[in-house]
């Protein structure tokens, strides 16, 4: 009876809502949405280097793409969800109450998929609202049709849910909270960027989480800028559906890893 999915889901939900983690998640989601709003207010034409304005398709793309760059935040939340069990050694009691270990991991994945979607929805709605609000304020029309903007925002929200799952998997794999957080942060901020500088490996970029995310969100600014600086040609991103497929594959691998990783480990 312990393995009743409903009981495990309820427990995970209680765990998420009874600490401030949910509040930090909400603040991060609101913050990343608001961040896009602030950039819109400042105007891409005032960036260094200047970019096309909000009233151009590219300018709107850039701002949406920047929202896509904040996907590491929900990944960190997913990581904390698992690594905090190891850090605070609640993992012992959790495993005693659900000795078939994959069951509580599966419950975490399910609850954090929901949390990731909620995170993405909040971030996307705030960012979308801010973009349209700024456009009205400045008396301009966004450079992309409303439907396209909404579709891109929806994709970003989904991407955030996938990244939350990736984060859960990293947490299950690395256990040590600091190591896991550093690994996730370093990956998104440094490792993928560095990989893009290596000519041979650059071809892999479209298939890495960041490249697939870029394909999905239509954000190529980073890749283009790097290509411009290094004088090489930018890696060709996949099409949006292919990017989505790659991300889903990562999510599936993440689930498999997260569920399999704690199976045989000794819990001391």
């Amino acid at each position: 009876m312990t393995a009743l999915p409903a009981a495990l889901l309820a427990a995970e939900w209680t765990r998420l809502t009874s600490t401030r983690l949910w509040l930090w998640g909400l603040l991060a989601a609101l913050g990343s949405g608001a961040f896009v709003g602030l950039l819109a207010l400042a105007g891409p034409e005032n960036f260094t280097p200047p970019l096309p304005g909000l009233d151009t398709a590219q300018g709107t793309h850039v701002l949406l793409g920047l929202l896509g760059c904040t996907v590491f935040a929900p990944a960190l939340l997913g990581t904390v969800a698992v690594s905090s069990e190891y850090r605070h050694r609640t993992i012992t009691t959790t495993t005693l109450f659900a000795p078939r270990r994959w069951t509580w991991l599966a419950a975490k994945l399910a609850v954090y998929t929901g949390a990731g979607l909620a995170y993405g929805a909040v971030a996307a709605i705030v960012a979308g609202g801010a973009l349209f609000g700024v456009a009205v304020l400045k008396g301009i029309t966004l450079g992309l049709p409303t439907v396209t903007v909404a579709a891109l925002l929806a994709r970003i929200a989904l991407t955030m849910a996938v990244y939350t799952l990736l984060g859960v998997a990293v947490g299950a794999l690395l256990r040590n909270q600091v190591t896991a957080l550093v690994a996730v942060g370093a990956y998104f901020y440094m490792i993928e960027t560095v990989l893009m500088l290596i000519p041979g490996i650059k071809e892999l970029y479209p298939y890495l989480p960041g490249g697939a995310t870029a394909a999905l969100t239509g954000f190529t600014y980073l890749a283009d800028a790097l290509a411009g600086q290094t004088g090489t040609s930018a890696a060709h991103l996949l099409s949006a559906p292919a990017g989505a497929a790659v991300l889903v594959c990562y999510a599936l691998i993440a689930i498999a890893v997260a569920v399999a990783a704690p199976l045989r480990r000794d819990i001391m």
């Binding site: 309820a10 427990a11 209680t14 009691t93 109450f97």
Partner: peptide, 12 residues
């Protein structure tokens, strides 16, 4: 109490 609630949920 939170701690007990989490594990009470888990055990049903």
């Amino acid at each position: 109490r939170d701690h007990l609630r989490v594990y009470a949920r888990m055990g049903g």
